[in-house]
Amino acid sequence: MDLTTLLDEIELVAGAGDADDVLDLVKRLIRTEQVAWACEIRRSVSKGQLDAEKLIASGEKIRRESIAHREQARRDLMKATRALLRTGGDNVITRGARELARFI
């Protein structure tokens, strides 16, 4: 499940859903091997009751972590591209890296 879909579902469940809806969402996340997200969302259900505020907070935490992960991946790609351009000489790969560097 992609991040946008997950956050939309969290908003829907927090607004009009119940604990069973959250548990269903958790099962779908586990089936797609998104266990960390499933664990975070599962914490919003306690003793069969949904804590909507906790669910919204979980969604925000997942969103913040995803943004941080994307930014770190961008920095890592930029670092690797610079290293390739410094040491790679002039070939097809380094020319592609120069083109890529403009978009990073």
Rank of each mutant, 00 (worst) to 15 (best):
I41T: 03
L84T: 12
D21Q: 06
Q72R: 14
R74K: 14
W37Q: 13
R70V: 08
R28L: 11
G88A: 12
I56H: 04
N91C: 15
V35N: 12
A73N: 07
I56L: 15
A19M: 06
L55G: 06
A52G: 07
K47Y: 04
K79E: 15
E33K: 12
D51P: 01
S66Y: 04
R86I: 08
V13T: 10
L23K: 09
K27R: 09
L50K: 02
G59K: 01
V22H: 05
K27I: 02
R28C: 03
I10N: 07
A97T: 07
S46W: 00
K79L: 12
L50C: 09
L23W: 02
A73D: 09
V22W: 05
R82M: 12
D90I: 10
G48W: 00
I30V: 13
D24S: 12
Q34H: 08
G48T: 03
G88R: 07
R28V: 07
L50H: 02
S46P: 00
E9N: 11
E11Q: 10
L77P: 01
L29I: 03
C39D: 09
G96Y: 06
D76P: 00
D18L: 06
S58Y: 01
R86S: 14
R86G: 03
R64L: 14
Q49T: 04
T87W: 08
R98M: 13
K79F: 10
A68C: 01
L77C: 13
V26C: 11
G59L: 07
A14L: 05
R86C: 08
K61I: 02
E65Y: 01
T94F: 12
K27G: 07
N91Y: 05
L23S: 05
A57L: 11
A14V: 03
V92E: 15
G89Q: 09
I41C: 05
L50Q: 04
A38V: 01
